[in-house]
Simulated assay, not measured.
Amino acid sequence: MPVFYSPVPENLQMGLAYMGGSVFTNNRTMDSDFNREQEDASVVNELVSHLPLQMLLYFNLFYFPCWWFSAVFMLEVKYYHLPGYYQALLITGLVLVTVIEVIRLYLGYIGNLKEKVPALAAFWLLSFTFQLPVLLFFITDEGVIILPLERAVHSIYLIFLLAQILASFLALRTMTRKLTLLFHLRQLGKVESMRHAEMSPIYGLPYNRSVLPVSPTH
């Protein structure tokens, strides 16, 4: 007995292929989105705090009171042997260094431990533009009558400061790279999600258009 095969309508074949492709492609998309979320989470959870910078800040926190008492004592010893303008400059410089140092150490701790780029950038700027010039003035200008103890404590403080400037620069570069990577990952995720939401991955057909046979409406 002959068997007759009725051909499947072409629009029905297209509809079935579209449905199957959408299901399996959406599964792959969900897997890729899950992997991307895992990668993004690993980048977010990665700690980029700079350990050498944190150690320098910790030791500087204990050394600064010793430096301050030594500087005040040396200033009192030589105060009346200095011209009037050097007296004013040294007092102003000591006050500025004291105030800025408190703010600088706070910004360094917050910026490094909590990975806040603006705070760490402010720490670097204060170190490079305020503390370093004043300290170089204390240690290089012979008109201020540099005493041996003063030269020693200023030299140690200068080493701390230069090391912190270098370490904070490296920490800023690492944190900036992390933020840039996160930005690109999130932008890539948005672009792909928009692309999948608007276009069919197989035939390039919009998702809101159907190729299934539609009964004519009267």
Rank of each mutant, 00 (worst) to 15 (best):
V134T: 05
F24D: 03
R186W: 04
L94F: 07
L51K: 15
E39S: 15
L135T: 09
I165M: 03
N60T: 14
P118S: 08
M19D: 09
V8C: 07
L158S: 04
H184A: 12
V48S: 05
A197D: 11
N11D: 14
L132Y: 00
S22N: 09
T25Y: 01
Y79R: 10
G84K: 13
L170T: 04
A171L: 02
Y63G: 02
W68Y: 14
D31E: 13
G189Q: 12
L136P: 07
G204N: 11
N26G: 14
F137M: 09
F138N: 04
G204D: 09
I165R: 05
P52L: 00
W67H: 06
E115D: 01
T176A: 06
N27C: 04
P201L: 08
P213D: 03
N45W: 06
S32L: 12
L113A: 10
D31T: 06
N26M: 07
Y109G: 04
Y85V: 10
I146H: 07
R209T: 06
L96R: 07
T140Y: 10
A163D: 10
L82H: 06
L75F: 05
F64E: 08
F138C: 06
N208V: 06
I100W: 09
P201G: 07
R36Y: 10
K114Y: 13
A17G: 07
P148S: 00
M19S: 12
L105N: 06
L16K: 03
L147F: 07
L89M: 15
L57A: 03
F69C: 05
Y79I: 02
S155M: 03
K190N: 12
F69W: 11
E150Q: 08
R195L: 13
V44N: 10
L212S: 06
K116F: 01
